[in-house]
Structure formats: structure tokens, C-alpha cells
Design a protein around this nucleic acid. Structure first.
Length: 839
RNA sequence: GGGCGAGUGGUGGAAUGGCAUACACGAUGGACUUAAAAUCCAUUGGCCGCAAGGUCAUGAGGGUUCAACUCCCUCUUCGCCCACCA
């Protein structure tokens, strides 16, 4: 290898040690003046980090260091989302105990983070798989239980036959297991749920409070909660007293309801079909529909299938008798599990009606041309004019919606209602590597929560964690057999563990008092430090983790345990780094390891390239070539700094630097013109970098702005005469470069800063302000366009009047030629920028 | 099917109504060197032209405007998220 551009391998470990020893990132939680809580999503401790992971921590580190330099008291902690499937799966395959492999991974990752130069207040480290943490996860469970927000019910759950475990709806991706891609089936099991639906409205409404969240994350959360407003309508079953209620968002189409459909699981179905002529067929149809796996039922082009029950219901608005069907496309979990079908104005109903030859009736006409039900090829779902709807005929359907709802409420045949797509959060996992649910079952006393003083419920060491379709904990007698806390009689523990999303939904509170063994967090301290000022993480957590954290925060707020109801004030979601067009993964063999790159180029280079690769919120393609470019840039800074600042170059400096120093040619004197120009560029760069960081983390353009400044320093030196001493303008420029880049490339900046004779860390420095008077250009280049095309350019003094400009423009040779003798129709001046002449 | 985002040189990208292609990578040439590497300097969107210069280009087509990568409409390709939600 060629001689290094600069001795990164010496300076980087030195400064990492220095920051650690001087406690640069240590925070006293009692000092909340100018506090800034900078939080990165804590990682799952997998084998090792790649450069894609690095982006998150590097961005966070830049924010932390930048805020530090702006006088903030920055809290930047790190921890480990350490429970979870991969470690357990590895253990099942015959590897180490999950605790051992997880803790080993944590050690490795910590080293990697340190090598990246990413700083944390490590005294606050939390690890969710250790009892001193999960004790409090269990405590939070108990709080929800006391409030009636944690409950158990038998539920059809998603079951992964391969992982042998239950999956949350969120972990089922188009009918397949999120982790192993196996088709998901259904099972009925007793499961623990958190009643997140009780907070659906608040979670939705308060999205508006999250002003500094990416719009798309907010949209995803809104869609996930999925509020829809409509009307619940009662349909009487013909020749019976029974009533079936359905939910619709399109009450304006009620007069066009020509049949009704129930979900196969609907509770009334059994009764309804009893004794029907085709009872047998209907029963077998229902059985088939129930057996359909998630994938069959949710496939895009799933065939809509149904069967007539033999029964009829009465449409309450017009007394019409309409047939009652059962169909696989109606979901029991949403609304009431019963749907009024309006084939003319709903595409699914339309397809179903065509297939089974059910009547189609138009009740909303297309203003652009009359609809004919017999000729329609698809449902008309647009707005239009009400027809065949008795007293509502002639109204626009939008208007009719409200009027029909009013009328139905008045007549007591329907009432306004709201539905959410959000389901309760299923937290039970039949797994070993998670926090045990702190519940005891006693034959006498029933379900008994573990008393707070008995927490934590420890994971047993003797569990055999191979899945058998029940929790591995169920096979540990030492764990299961327990005395009832109430009657001291024989009792059994709950063998299930909690979803790891529970662990990660409150960790940001624990960082403020990570060692406290009396309580999960300190109310007073937490209220001062939270909400988090800047949260940074991957967009893949846009829905689940962020929604669950918001939910838990709101519950704790309602319990008066904390004084704020949203955990994260500002959110930044960084894009993924891909290689060869694909997400980095071991199986694809496209993982770029930071360790090799840091050995070769140093961590400042890896950091700089990671930040320069593109806008941080967007996905980016990794290029090893680009890394070299970043490396060269740092070398350029190092060399020019050695030349300008008149310090003996290091023995490793390039040959020409050493030679020039020995010849005494390292001193430069700028002409006053050049000096003025460079000072202007220096201050313009301060402005640009500051604004780029402040206004949306545009690190890539902040770096290119500094590159421009460095290029200009090189230009200035080229033109400079050898002089008597250091040129103050050159010194100011190179110092500015070091300071502006300090958050991005902290080691080299710190080293240069020290070399220039400063005793304190560069991060104790105040972020520079630019001098407004210096960035003004007195003379500007004005672009002259003819009919919108650039034809010439002239120099004019700043703030020239239109008259002065016009005079100058019209005597310009090129412009004279272009205009010729054609009359000028318009003369547009954008002050200090451009002129457009229309001829 | 719905929602969101994107499409700019050989490549990553910059410009959010005002000089399209900043900055970087790559490439080419030069200086230095016995040589190479490194470094420094120069050139680098296409086409026409010796040149001055002209002309065409921001996925395609249309519109608004003195002026459009930027705003509006239609279409198209790709990515992500959701998806039989009544």
C-alpha cells in the first residue's frame, strides 16, 4: 500500500480514548439546562454491523456533536433490543444459549461502534434481556393489567408452522411469516392482548402534534389506524324477530342494497342455516372458508365465493326483501361481519352479483351520462346524483349521506358509527427468549398477577427451548410450579413470554435511570428530559415500534406516571444503504464490513463517505470507489493544513510537503483581492453548512460545500506569493474547514485543532457564526436572457436599479446583435440575478 | 386495487420558478518520478463547428409562465408501504 495520506491509524484510537477518558458524552441527568435528548433506535444484537447499519449511528453522532457545539447539554445513550427470535433459533440449531450469544454479540457491536468514533454515554447502557431491565417490562405489563388494558382471550391467531409460534398481524406479510416466509395458518389459542384499540382515536388525533415527523410516516400510521366513519344499519330478518346489523361508509347507496352478506364466522350463521334445504352444502362451504389459510384469503385475485342461506332480510329504508348470503370476502374482524351489498356502486359487490346473478340497481347516477345497470361493466363508485332513493332523489350523493344518516337516526333504524382497522396488540409468544408474562394461575384464586415485590419473574436456565407448539417455559418445572401469591396454594405460571416490541416501547425512559432498582424510571427526571428531541432510525419501524411506543407513553401518561403524552418530538428516518441494488444480507453476499474499510482508510473516511453518499433520508447505493474519494478529500485537508499553518509536517506527510517545508515555501501571502474572495467563501460556507444541517439534515450538500471551500483554498495558494508569514485569511479558512467538519469527521478535526495549539476539545468550541458583511458580493454577474435563453452576462454593482441595468444591457455587443432592430416587448429584471428581454 | 416516493451526464448526486448538470466518482491529457503509486494542474452531457458560437437534452406528451428539473393535466417505468376494511 502507498504511504497514507494522513496518519489516521494513529490519531483515531487516540481521540476515541480521549473522548472516553474526558467524558465528552457523559451527562449529568440533573443538569437539564439546554438539554437535548438525541436518541437512535437501539439495535438487535446480531453477529456484527455492516455499513448500512452504520448510517443510523453516524447520523445520530453528527447530530449529537453538532448540538454539543451549539451549546446543548446532549444526552445520547445506547442500548440493546436483546430479546428475540434469531438468538433462539440459533440456539435451537445447536448453537449457544441465547443469553451467551447475545451478550457476545453486544461486546462485538460495542467495539464496532467505538471504532466508528460514535460516542455514547455508555454508563446508561440498557440491555432488554437482562433481569434489571425486563423486571420493569413486566412491571409495565402489570400496570396495563391493573388498568384493564392487558387481557386474555381465545382468539384465532396467526400460526407459523415452521417457527412453531404465534405471529402478530403485523408479522404476517401477505399471508407469509415475516421471518421465514412460510404460509401462515390459523389456530385458536388463549392469548394475551394489549388493548391498543382503546387508544385508536387518541393515537390518530395526536399524529397532528408530531409536526416534525416525516409526512409519509404519519400517513402510514393514519392508514394503519384506519378510521372510517359511517352508519350502522339494522336489517330485520324476514319471518323472524332477529336483527342483523351491518356497517357502511356509503349510506348514500342504501336504497341500492340488493342483498346482504355475512362472514362465514358470523355468530348468527349457525342459527340461520339450521333446517335450510341446502344446510349441508352451506355448512361445508363455511368449513372450507374457515380452513382457508391467510394466504388464500388475502390473495389479490382471490375468487369471491358465496352461498345463499335461504333466508331474507328487510332493507329498512324501503321494506324490500333481499336475499341473505355468506361469502368468503367478508371479514369478521372488521365492522360487524355483515355487509349490505350495493353491486351498482361497489366493485366487490358488483363482481359477486355478476357471478351469482344477483340484481344490480343504480341509485347514484353519473352526471356525465345515465347509467344502465344491465350494461354496466364495473361498479360506478364516483360521486353523482341520487336516483331511485325516494325522497332523496335529485340530491348530490355527498349531501344525501348526511341527510340519510340523520333520517335513519331519527327513525331509529341506524346510527352513526366509527370503525378502525387497528386491532388489539397480541403480545403472547410461545417462545423462550423473551420477558415472561408475570401472571400466575391458581385453581382456587384464578388468574393472579405476580406481586410487584416478586418481580422479576426470571427466565429459567433449565428450559429446553425447542418449540413444541407451546412455550418452552411450560416444560421447566422449576419455572412453572409456584405458590399462589394469594392463598399460598399450588399454582402454575403463565408460560408465554412477551413480544419484543413491548421491550422496545419504553426503553427511552430507562436511559435516564438505568441502574435504579426501585422504579423503572424517575418521574421528575424523565419529565425534564422527554420528549426525545431527536429520534433517528429506519423507516421500517414507521408503524409498529413507533405506534407501540406512542401507545405505552399515552398509557403511562393516563396513569400519571409521566407528564407527557408523546415520546418523540422530532423523528428522522434514514434510508437504507444497498449494494448491487439489494439490501445487504449475508445470504446475498453483498455485505460491506466497516472493519476492513476502517483498517484501510480510517473511520473518518467511512463516516464522511456514508454522509456524502446522498440525502440521508433516501436509499443509497454503496460504492467502494466513492470511499476513496472521501479518503482523498481528508488527505487534501491534512496536507493543506500542514502547509498553511507553518507546523513541521509529520514524518508521514507526503514528500512534496516535506520538501516544500524544508525550502521554506510553506508561507503564503494572499493579495488583498484574493484574500477578500477567500474570506467571502469561508463565511458563505459557514452559512451553507449551518443551514444544510439545520434545515433537514442535508449532510451531503454540507460536505460538498466544504469541499468547495477546500478547493478554493488550493486555488488561493496557487496564486499566492511566498510571503513573510502565515496568511490570516488562509488560516481562518482552514480552521473553519476543521470546525465545520468536526461533527462529520471528528478525529481529524480534533487532531488538527490540537496541532494548532488548542488545549480543549474542538467539541467544546462554539459553532461558528458567519459575518453577514463578509458574504455580500459588491459586484454580481447578471445573466441576460433573450426570450428566456441565456445570451450574455454582465457585471453590475449590487442593488443596481432597473434603469442602470437596462442601460448597461442594451450597450452589450452580443445583446445588441440579438435584438437588432426588433422592438422590445418586455424587460424583466430579477434584481441581482437576471434580466429577460422579450422581443 | 389504494397510498407514498422517485425517474437529471458513463456513475452517486446538486439545483423547489430565474445560468440545468454544483460536489464527488470514473475517464482522458499534462507536471513530478529511472518507473509506478500518491500528489498537483487541466479537460470531461450529446450533436454541428478549426474556432467564435450554435443547437438538442432533466422518463414521454401536453398546459400555465417573460422564464419550468421545479407548478398543473395525461401517460409510463421503477421502488416502498398497505391491501377483499364494506
Amino acid at each position: 500500500m502507498a504511504e497514507p495520506h494522513y496518519p489516521f491509524n494513529e490519531i483515531e484510537p487516540k481521540w476515541q480514548k480521549f473522548w472516553d477518558e474526558t467524558g465528552l458524552f457523559k451527562v449529568d441527568e440533573k443538569n437539564t439546562k439546554n438539554k437535548f435528548y438525541c436518541l437512535m433506535m437501539f439495535p438487535y444484537p446480531s453477529a456484527s454491523l455492516h455499513v448500512g447499519h452504520g448510517r443510523n449511528y453516524i447520523i445520530g453522532d453528527v447530530v449529537a456533536r453538532y448540538k454539543m457545539m451549539n451549546g446543548f447539554n446532549v444526552l445520547t445513550p445506547m442500548g440493546w433490543d436483546a430479546f428475540g427470535l434469531p438468538a433462539e433459533n440459533a440456539a435451537i440449531k445447536g448453537g449457544l444459549h441465547p443469553r451467551i450469544s447475545t451478550l457476545a454479540n453486544i461486546t462485538t457491536m460495542k467495539k464496532q461502534l467505538n471504532r466508528w468514533g460514535v460516542g455514547y454515554d455508555w454508563a446508561r447502557e440498557v440491555t432488554s434481556c437482562l433481569p434489571d431491565y425486563y423486571k420493569w417490562t413486566q412491571w409495565i405489563f402489570l400496570k396495563l393489567y391493573e388498568k384493564g388494558l392487558a387481557y386474555k382471550k381465545k382468539a384465532a391467531v396467526n400460526w407459523c408452522p415452521s417457527c412453531n409460534t404465534v405471529l402478530a398481524n403485523e408479522q404476517v406479510i401477505s399471508g407469509k411469516c415475516e421471518r421465514c416466509d412460510t404460509d401462515v395458518t390459523q389456530r385458536d389459542l388463549e392469548q394475551w392482548f394489549f388493548k391498543i384499540t382503546a387508544y385508536a382515536e387518541t393515537l390518530l388525533k395526536d399524529i397532528d402534534k408530531l409536526t416534525n415527523w416525516p409526512e409519509r410516516v404519519k400517513i402510514m400510521q393514519r392508514n394503519w389506524i384506519g378510521k372510517s366513519e359511517g352508519v350502522e344499519i339494522d336489517f330485520k330478518i324476514a319471518d323472524s324477530n332477529k336483527i342483523l346489523t351491518c356497517f357502511t361508509t356509503r349510506v348514500d347507496t342504501i336504497f341500492g342494497a340488493t342483498y346482504m352478506v355475512l362472514a362465514p364466522e358470523h355468530s348468527e350463521v349457525d342459527d340461520l342455516i339450521k333446517g335450510a334445504v341446502n344446510e349441508k352444502e352451506v355448512r361445508s362451504f363455511i368449513q372450507k372458508a374457515k380452513n382457508e389459510t391467510m394466504i388464500e384469503r388475502s390473495a389479490t385475485n382471490a375468487e369471491k365465493e358465496g352461498m345463499f342461506t335461504g333466508k331474507y332480510v328487510i332493507n329498512p329504508v324501503n321494506g324490500r326483501k333481499i336475499p341473505l348470503w355468506i361469502a368468503n370476502y367478508v371479514l369478521m374482524e372488521y365492522g360487524t361481519g355483515a355487509v349490505m351489498a350495493v353491486p351498482a356502486h361497489d366493485q366487490r359487490d358488483f363482481e359477486f352479483a355478476k357471478k351469482y346473478n344477483l340484481p344490480i340497481e343504480v341509485v347514484i347516477d353519473n352526471p356525465k351520462g345515465k347509467l344502465n345497470a344491465a350494461l354496466m361493466k364495473e361498479a360506478y363508485i364516483e360521486d353523482g346524483v341520487m336516483v331511485n332513493s325516494s325522497q332523496f332523489d335529485g340530491l348530490s350523493n355527498r349531501e344525501a349521506m348526511g341527510k340519510i344518516a340523520d333520517w335513519m337516526e331519527q327513525k331509529k333504524i341506524g346510527k352513526r358509527s366509527v370503525n378502525y382497522r387497528l386491532r388489539d396488540w397480541l403480545i403472547s409468544r410461545q417462545r423462550y427468549w423473551g420477558a415472561p408474562i408475570p401472571i400466575i394461575y391458581c385453581d382456587k384464586c384464578g388468574m393472579v398477577p405476580v406481586p410487584e415485590k416478586d418481580l422479576p419473574v426470571l427466565l429459567p436456565e433449565d428450559a429446553e427451548f425447542r418449540p413444541h407448539g407451546e412455550s418452552p417455559l411450560a416444560r421447566s418445572r422449576s419455572f412453572m410450579d409456584v405458590k399462589c401469591p394469594k392463598c399460598r396454594g399450588k399454582a402454575k405460571r403463565e408460560p408465554d413470554t412477551m413480544d419484543t416490541f413491548v421491550d422496545s416501547s419504553w426503553y427511552y425512559l430507562r436511559y435516564l435511570s438505568p441502574k435504579d432498582d426501585k422504579k423503572p424510571f424517575d418521574r421528575e427526571v424523565v419529565n425534564k428530559w422527554l420528549p426525545v428531541d431527536q429520534y433517528i432510525g429506519g423507516v421500517e419501524h414507521a408503524i409498529l415500534h413507533l405506534l407501540y411506543s406512542r401507545f405505552i407513553t399515552k398509557v403511562l401518561y393516563d396513569l400519571k406516571l409521566i407528564g407527557f403524552d408523546e415520546p418523540f418530538k422530532n423523528l428522522f428516518t434514514q434510508g437504507m444503504i444497498v449494494k448491487d441494488g439489494a439490501k445487504m444480507s449475508k445470504s446475498k453476499g453483498n455485505v460491506v464490513s466497516p472493519d476492513i474499510l476502517i483498517d484501510k482508510y480510517g473511520s473518518d473516511t467511512v463516516r464522511l463517505y456514508t454522509l456524502f453518499i446522498g440525502p440521508p433520508e433516501k436509499d443509497a447505493e454503496w460504492s467502494d470507489r466513492g470511499v476513496e474519494g472521501a479518503y482523498r478529500f481528508l488527505g487534501r485537508i491534512w496536507r493543506v493544513a500542514e502547509q498553511i499553518t507553518n507546523h513541521p509536517p509529520s514524518p508521514k506527510a507526503s514528500a512534496d510537503v516535506r520538501r516544500s517545508f524544508n525550502k521554506g515555501g510553506h508561507k503564503f501571502q494572499l493579495t488583498s483581492e484574493a484574500s477578500k474572495k477567500l474570506r467571502r467563501k469561508t463565511h458563505q460556507t459557514i452559512k451553507r453548512v449551518t443551514e444544510d444541517i439545520e434545515q433537514g439534515f442535508h449532510f451531503n450538500t454540507a460536505i460538498s460545500a466544504t469541499m468547495e471551500l477546500v478547493n478554493e483554498i488550493y486555488d488561493a495558494i496557487q496564486e499566492a506569493k511566498e510571503g513573510l508569514g502565515d496568511d490570516p485569511t488562509l488560516k481562518e479558512a482552514i480552521k473553519t474547514v476543521a470546525i465545520l467538519l468536526a461533527p462529520f469527521v471528528p478525529h481529524i478535526s480534533e487532531e488538527l485543532w490540537r496541532k494548532w495549539g488548542n488545549k480543549e476539545s474542538i467539541f467544546k468550541l462554539k459553532w461558528p457564526a458567519y459575518d453577514k458583511s463578509l458574504i455580500i458580493e459588491e459586484e454580481l454577474e447578471l445573466v441576460i436572457q433573450i426570450n428566456g435563453r441565456v445570451r450574455s452576462k454582465i457585471l453590475v454593482p449590487k442593488d443596481s436599479s432597473e434603469l442602470d441595468v437596462k442601460e448597461k444591457v442594451l450597450i452589450d455587443e452580443k445583446i445588441k446583435q440579438w435584438i437588432g432592430d426588433k422592438p422590445i416587448k418586455k424587460f424583466i429584471l430579477v434584481p441581482d440575478k437576471l434580466v429577460n428581454i422579450v422581443i
